[in-house]
């Protein structure tokens, strides 16, 4: 228990430290602000006076107005409300997918990189197979089996993200496992899983956090792509991809219908990417996850 708490506080400390350094940049702080807005919208959607489901067929495809800031869709529903609730769909899918991908991918990468024997070969060949399949095709095939639902989209996107985590975790372990402090833990009797999860993982965390952010943006895009192809979250649940899919048919009559959700989607992904890039640059400079060598 205590060891877990120690490892956790070690992880948390390094993450907070990085976040503090990050917010110094203008582009990243803007991205943070936008993502915060999206996240707040997703969390507090129920509190806002917005209704994404009620149809008003008489007022369909209205342009933006004071009563409906983003206009209405073909069924007379408020597009802004659907964008706000769509944020929930997107973020839940992204978060769930990242969690799934990390929970499966990181242990695979840790085991493969740590032992480096037949386990490495077997696991990494599996990962290669997964990587060789185009994400979108794989996700569609999985949804065809599981049926169309948010859970299916989430699992499909999550599984598609496993290779990213596995490869990063493996590379980190291979760099870290020969280091003295790992040898030290091994020499006083730390078992393999203890070393992998308590000793190596906290030090490999930074690149994995970057990967999580990158994957979150990929997941949002993939979820939107699935919805755009008509295999995402089933209607009437709002989803940005679904709005793009339907909205594109009304580009002549109501251009804002597709453009505004598309804009929000683009900005969200851009924000994730900006933060991911800044984080990568920062970590390359300050903290590669390998302890600095000083005083020699």
């Amino acid at each position: 228990m205590a060891a877990r708490r120690d490892a956790m506080s070690a992880m948390l400390g390094s993450t907070l430290q990085v976040l503090r350094r990050l917010s110094a940049r203008r582009s990243t702080s803007l991205s943070f602000a936008f993502l915060l807005l999206v996240a707040l919208a997703a969390v507090f959607a129920d509190v806002l006076p917005l209704d994404p489901l009620t149809q008003n067929l008489a007022d369909s495809l209205m342009p933006p107005s004071s009563s409906a800031w983003f206009g209405t869709d073909e069924l007379g529903r408020d597009i802004l409300a659907r964008v706000v609730y769509g944020a929930r769909t997107s973020l839940v899918t992204a978060f769930g997918a990242v969690v799934i991908a990390a929970l499966i991918g990181v242990p695979i990468g840790l085991v493969a990189g740590f032992f480096g024997d037949w386990r490495d070969s077997v696991l990494m060949r599996c990962i290669d197979v997964l990587l060789a399949l185009p994400n979108i095709l794989f996700a569609m095939a999985l949804i065809a089996v599981l049926g169309r639902s948010q859970a299916a989209a989430l699992v499909a996107v999550g599984i598609a993200g496993i290779p990213n985590f596995a490869r990063i975790a493996r590379a980190q372990v291979m760099a870290l496992r020969q280091l003295d402090f790992v040898t030290a833990v091994r020499s006083f009797g730390g078992g393999s899983s203890y070393i992998m999860f308590r000793t190596i993982l906290p030090n490999a965390l930074s690149p994995l956090v970057v990967q999580a952010i990158v994957l979150a943006s990929i997941a949002i895009l993939l979820e939107a792509a699935l919805a755009f192809l008509g295999v995402g979250v089933p209607p009437p649940t709002p989803s940005w991809g679904e709005m793009l899919r339907t909205g594109k048919s009304y580009l002549h009559e109501a251009p804002t219908y597709a453009v505004l959700p598309g804009l929000v989607l683009t900005l969200t992904i851009l924000s994730f990417d900006t933060i991911g890039r800044a984080l990568t640059a920062l970590l390359d400079r300050h903290d590669t996850g390998v302890p600095e060598r000083r005083g020699r």
């Binding site: 070690a10 003295d180 402090f181 040898t183 833990v185 030090n203 302890p291 600095e292 000083r294 020699r296």
Partner: peptide
């Protein structure tokens, strides 16, 4: 090496 044999985040 006493610099590398201690976990830097503990």
């Amino acid at each position: 090496n006493p610099y590398s044999s201690l976990h830097p985040r503990m």
